[in-house]
Nucleic acid binder design. Sequence first.
DNA 1: AACGATCCCTGTTGGC
DNA 2: TGCCAACAGGGATCGT
Length: 279
Amino acid sequence: MPELPEVEITRRHLDDAMAGHSLDVVRTTHARTARYNRGPGELDERLQGRAVVGIGRKGKFLAGVLDDGQTLVAHLGMSGRFTVGDPLEPEPAHTHFRTLLDNGREVRFVDPRTFGFVAVFDDEELEGSGLSRLGPDAWLEALSPTALHSALSTRKAPIKALLLDQVVVAGLGNIYADEALHIAGIHPMRRGADLTVEEIERLLTAIRSVLDTAIDNGGTSLDDLAYLLPDGRAGENLDRLVVYGRAELPCLECGAPIERVVIRARSSHFCPHCQALRP
DNA sequence: AACGATCCCTGTTGGC
DNA sequence: TGCCAACAGGGATCGT
């Protein structure tokens, strides 16, 4: 499912396709996709005719700058995907949003599970949105080990849960959180406040490493999920995963069977030997 | 304030 | 073969 690397690849694609172009026709066809505006009608009306200055990203949110000062916000949720192509191409099932650009190309948002959305916000609406509550971006911003150590010093929740909290750090999801904890040698059930500054430093290095690798490899395309590269091919990062989805298989470092536990209703995968619970 | 549970949603999968 | 329950999870919301 889309996490920071997949959203970053999508951002580059959308920026290439949309920057400098206007949205000549906008049509949203699913109420849930427009749920952060009053509805499809308002979303379409406020976007219609606007030009896109550029497409940015914070955490897993896409944020496009429009020529009238509004912000085009989108989130891929679990199954959201943007395509850019000829408007005459057959439309995939679950296409909930489309916009025809002034160069004749069409941008579409396809999202079977409708956890994703498209929205347009003015500055006040943006302030009240989830985007404004995000912590530092896990890839763009340099997090200092001492600052994060201090921020976690009051937190008793498992580090895995804290990594998924977008207020702590923005952009990690279930896959890359598990991968980063493995590389850093930290058990997902360790309490945030119990981590040493050295462990936090290892964790930040590991986060940077897994995100760099994932972006370089075109993101992670799981068998049954919707993320694909802009050209429709599967991303190749699945082969690089060392713990996610490998429950009961041998750890690639030490051979011990990878374990799976549920933390905050999310599956967590880890090596009980490389990621000991007691430091 | 922090934490954990619950809900939303549908394609896929596994059991019978 | 067909049916159906279980499962996957990002973020919002709510109760404790």
